[in-house]
Write a protein that binds this DNA or RNA. Sequence first.
RNA 1: GCGCGAUUAGCUCAGUUGGUAGAGCAGUUCAUUUACACUGAAAAGGUCGGGGGUUCGAGCCCCUCAUCGCGCACCA
Length: 729
Amino acid sequence: MNPQNNAEIPNIPPIFLKPFSAQDYENKLYAMWENSGYFNPDVCIEKGITASDAETFSIVMPPPNANGSLHAGHALFVTIQDIMIRYARMQGKRTLWLPGADHAGFETQVVYEKKLEKEGRSRFTMDPKDLYKEIMDFTLSNKSFMEGQIRALGASCDWSRALFTLDDRVIKTVYDTFLQLEKDNLLYRGARIVNWCSKHQTSLSNLETEHIERVDKFYYFQYGPFVIGTARPETKFGDKYVVMHPDDAQYAQYTHGQQIELEWINGPITATVIKDEAGDPEMGSGAMTITPWHSGIDFQVAKRHNLDYEQIINWQGKLLPIAGEFTGMNIKEAREKIVEKLAEKGLLVRVDENYTHSVPCCYKCDREIEPQIRAQWFVKTKPLAEKAVAAVNAKAFSFSTDRDERVFRDWMDKIEDWNISRQVIWGIPIPAKICVDCDAGMVDLANTVTECTACGGTVVADPDTFDTWFSSGQWPLATLNYPDSTDFKNYYPTSVMETGKDIIFFWVARMIMLGLYRTGNVPFKYVYLHGMVRDKHGKKMSKSKGNVIAPSEIQDKYGTDALRMALMVNNAPGSDMNLDPDKVNAYKKFANKIWNITRFVLSSTEEYQPNAPFTETDAEIINTILTAQITEISSLMDNNRFDLASERIYHFVWTYFADELIEASKPLLASTDVKVVQSQKRLLVTHLITSLKVLHPYMPFITEAIWQELPAEMKDSDMIMVAKWPGSK
RNA sequence: GCGCGAUUAGCUCAGUUGGUAGAGCAGUUCAUUUACACUGAAAAGGUCGGGGGUUCGAGCCCCUCAUCGCGCACCA
């Protein structure tokens, strides 16, 4: 290219004389948008951009964790939601996208604990208040960093309404719900088997565990006249009940409650026969001993027959004094030694070396979960789940794919009570007193409870915090300021909940249950779930594999618009996608193509007349081809098929506009017939404006950068962000 | 165990109600003061995992098998 030639063309703003460079524009343009106030629907109404009676479109943003950098999944969700929002805003809807930041309780505490570990410190030796303050400082500094990255992705969200999950309003909402649940008898505190992580020293919900398949040894021991099997000999010290199925013929001679003297690990014991349907005649010998404190099934058996419970393993994963000589040993090292001792005593029958089973582990540290009995707060979820299923039956909300709805229903059908207590510092304190003499708990928002209402015993403040998902589950209520705000009236239920399919149970299901519970209405009408972003070969991104693609690096190299397009094109809703830098590069080229299309159009449209009459041919192109293409694109967008719409737009701009229309225009522009030339100029400008508009939701920066350089007579608005979508009123 | 998904060009993936397949990247040939080389033109490349069925017609619907992946939940 020879700049001198171009410099002679008066119509081209100088910026078009070099290739598009995203870095030169993005920050400035975002600041311009943000300063305009147009992210805020109230401002749009004030300034006459949006009609005051316009249809609303609202999204509550899933608040990113304020504990680190954004990853590719964040870039994907920001892109999808921003496309929805920008499209709605251009259609003249009253459009709200409400951002936030998540303190992310346990998650953040784990991140912070790793930091402490590196510094040779531990949360267990710290004053809880100091720890809380340190994590707060850490989180707040990360929060502003994270919000900067959201801005860099082009998110046109209303920062004036931003909320943090530890803000007073959130806490008030959560406390109100907690109290309401108690009043409605949907809340209880009781000793139940919980998933205990002995590294993180907290209980976890079932969803916070993952099952890891392992091959372990499976031992058979002589237990009096019975042979019992176990993979966990270290729990067997207290086993004094032997359970068999009531109908198991091989044990017909034994009666329920019968006592048997037998030799066991640390000497003679008296065992009691329990007939219970938990015993499976097909499994092993059909007889089993139970450890009610450390097994869910055993706990149920013990509950049914009112048996004793005894803790064998302490909270740190070490054996308690009941283990005799093994007291204080870590369960892993104790296992082999216990087996050795049983073998010496002649009680080891045989060992199955290839026992394959999956064991529940902490999803953060992979350490085996130790089931423990602990008094915790539980929400009775069945009544809440029934309402949620009724709502989906009544089509009060729907999912982007049928399979998501099936997955949702499946989980709702077999939902169990939800443990909402966590032994975590970094979270919202549970506003309750707990009894030190029994397991009772009393909701105590006003701090007036002085003794146990169940036993009259001494009470203390509950040291626990809420499961983050309990508060996140009320996020739409808190952000829209339930119950009396105008935002709540205007925007609840929101139009769309867009989030990752991996948190359909953690978050989406909980928001539906709690939203329905508090307001009687679903929190959103449509659930769009995106898949995971993987590396270019479909592998999960992880630091250890070294295949993590940081959005900020991609943005620096190729531009944010290119990243956004790469994330959208051919990425079907709900399925995982692979992010290949080569694909991003393809859309960087596309950005430059748009740049040069503009340059050509501007350089060819001196003395452009906005009202020049179209020739018959050109009118035909406008009325049929252009209209048809835009209708199709809008229709795909209305159906949330941004993957298909973006590909269509790409070809509309490159294949049709650039390769066909512009090439065809070259001889026509050279025509001696002024009418043909003027019509052609108007045709090119019309296509340019239309292209920029339909591209804008996907590639907001370059389209706005160009828009700002266009002569006033070509455009219908100062900013393309609030320009009218083609075909909309 | 229960449930779900995938299998389409060398690679990574699209394909909305059934009408003999599309993109990006890679590769082939040609074009060089062209709006744009971050380019253009042209061609090449797939019996849509195997088998069976429904249909005038199947990548798409049904059955079955195989392989890969995911979710949930158990286990003495």
